[in-house]
């Protein structure tokens, strides 16, 4: 039996959301300011991005301390990791469909 085709995830259609999930996929936790600077967005935009991905359970947030100041740590959930992996597979399948497949790159994570 063949596996069902991967579907593009509409929640990851936005470049900022996709970039944020890509960052969170390769680390366990990222601090709010670091993530904000990395994505080049404002505090309010990042808060909305986080809220938009926390609501479907793709990311979790936790209050903590870094360098003596209070901050927020953001992490991808297992569901979020799976969503990104599936989305990337769907993107590759879409490109392969027209015969110009992107080179494979590891996006595996357990």
């Amino acid at each position: 039996m063949s596996r069902p085709p991967q579907r593009l995830d509409p929640l990851l259609a936005s470049t900022n959301r996709l970039a944020m999930m890509a960052v969170l996929h390769d680390v366990d936790q990222v601090e709010f300011v670091t993530l904000r600077d990395r994505l080049g967005v404002s505090d309010s935009v990042l808060s909305k991005l986080i809220g938009g991905l926390a609501e479907p359970g793709y990311v979790t947030v936790r209050k903590g301390v870094l360098g003596g100041r209070r901050t927020t740590w953001v992490a991808a959930t297992r569901r979020g990791h799976r969503a990104l992996t599936g989305h990337v597979a769907a993107l590759r399948a879409l490109i392969a469909h027209v015969g110009t497949a992107e080179p494979e790159r590891s996006l595996s994570r357990q």
Binding site: Q6, L8, A22, V88, L94, I95, V98
Partner: peptide, 29 residues
Amino acid sequence: MESSGERPDRSSVDAARAALHTVRAEQER
């Protein structure tokens, strides 16, 4: 971008390539 069984149009493929580029760029960063 659509991922239905129909053949994707050029703009969908370009958007998919751009999305993959975003993921790759973040990995490298």
